[in-house]
Nucleic acid binder design. Structure first.
Length: 406
DNA sequence: TCTGGGGTCCTAGGACCC
DNA sequence: TCTGGGGTCCTAGGACCC
């Protein structure tokens, strides 16, 4: 039995809502937001007007446009969303400091000990909704429950603009006929395996013997069993003691598949520079460099190399990533490339003993210029040649864009 | 119209050491 | 002429989430 009061605040069609708010012409119209608007993009967010046509996020842009030919296409602007996000969380923080930032548009709040100041959890929910609406012109759905799992479920029960509470005593009836895949953490794969066992609803999941689930799913068998019963003991982890990042990476889907080493290595260099820049900006350095390659047939693999020292310089990352790439003899044409650095350390770290101290100075200068004038204003000379080459190869579009985050 | 980009956690197996 | 057991670090890949 859980006596906590947990809220989940989830913004409705967040990116699309922000765009409609900042441009009145978009209001009431189907809006698709994508990260880049190339042929191979997918929908990152869409307005409810677009959802009514059958569009959903994650859908290929081309398919969405077919379903909804009148949709207005917008290239996402991550800093606009990050700013709005901060303002939303700032409002939420007025009700408790036990606030966990779950994603750019979602946060959990534990108001167990503060709710009485505001007349209860329901009133907290109402207050947040009304302030987000009047200050930012956006709607959200809020779920209230004794734990995070049920709060998430509650928030999904009414969209858009919902406020829903699941009390502990309501949990059994809510779960009884709920499809298992609606539970947070059960995706298509696990859902299919459960279905194969004859389990399709959360109610059935809760009645399945724990041992049977453990034999099939290992450690998550326990979690599944408890989820089926509406139990979730995980705490709300406040933003101020959220763990450090584990990895920083960038990937890029080429506008055309290619085997051209100039393009492949050029993109690896560009991605490595981006990763290095972010590492330095956030004061991290890492020891493990991963290369990700997706081929034309969508088969994706990764190879990593752990070094004996920490690095945060784009060229060092590139050296490691391209060395791994050179070992690949796959004849297939490449669709996506990714570079990721993990095994991170924050703050002080041991640089390679042979690093020239002046190199640090140079990197700092480059970062300052790029901060001021935009990404890749200053970049390795070899990349300039790449841009011309991309043009002649018919790789249309902006290859040097900041790719943006969800 | 084929299928983005940024992450997290978990697992199984191998290498290596005592 | 057979073959332990614990621990740690590393790798590759899968599943999941927003």
């Amino acid at each position: 039995m859980d006596n906590r009061k947990i809220l989940l605040v989830d913004m409705n069609a967040f990116f699309a809502g922000v765009e409609q708010q900042s441009n009145p012409h978009l209001r009431g119209k189907p809006v698709l937001v994508g990260g880049g608007v190339g042929k191979r993009s997918v929908v990152a967010a869409c307005s409810y007007e677009a959802k009514w046509c059958g569009v959903s996020s994650g859908m290929p842009l081309m398919k969405a446009l077919k379903l909804c030919p009148d949709a207005i296409l917008i290239e996402g602007n991550s800093s606009k969303y990050t700013d709005t996000s901060k303002r939303i969380f700032k409002i939420c923080r007025d009700y408790t400091d036990r606030l966990e930032i779950y994603s750019i548009d979602e946060c959990f709040m534990d108001v167990t000990s503060t709710q009485s100041l505001f007349g209860g959890a329901w009133e907290v929910g109402r207050g947040i909704k009304s302030r987000i609406r009047t200050k930012l012109g956006l709607t959200c759905s809020i779920g209230i429950a004794p734990n995070k799992m049920l709060a998430k479920l509650a928030s999904n029960m009414k969209k858009p603009d919902g406020l829903t509470e699941i009390k502990w005593s309501d949990a059994p009836s809510v779960l009884e006929n709920l499809p298992v895949t609606k539970l947070h953490g059960i995706g298509d794969r696990t859902g299919a395996q459960l279905a194969y066992m004859g389990i399709t609803t959360a109610g059935q999941l809760g009645r399945t013997p724990r041992d049977k689930l453990k034999r099939k799913f290992g450690i998550i068998g326990d979690v599944l069993h408890e989820m089926g019963q509406g139990i979730d003991r995980s705490p709300v982890v406040p933003y101020y003691d959220s763990p450090d990042m584990k990895s920083i990476g960038h990937s890029y889907t080429l506008s055309k598949n290619t085997r051209d080493p100039d393009i492949i290595y050029g993109q690896l260099q560009r991605l490595s520079e981006k990763v290095g820049r972010r590492l330095r900006a956030e004061n991290y350095a890492g020891k493990t460099v991963s290369l990700v390659v997706r081929y034309e047939d969508m088969h994706t693999f990764s190879r990593r190399k752990t070094l004996s020292y920490y690095l945060d310089d784009g060229y060092d990352i590139y050296k490691a990533a391209s060395a791994i790439m050179r070992e690949q003899k796959d004849p297939r044409s490449v669709r996506l490339l990714g570079v990721c650095v993990s095994n991170l350390t924050k703050g002080m770290y041991q640089l390679d003993l042979f690093t020239n101290p002046r190199k640090k100075e140079l990197m700092k200068t480059v970062d300052t210029l790029n901060d001021k004038y935009g990404e890749f204003t200053v970049r390795p000379a070899s990349m300039v040649g790449l841009e011309a080459r991309l043009k002649t190869h018919g790789f249309a579009g902006k290859h040097y864009d900041d790719s943006w985050e969800t």
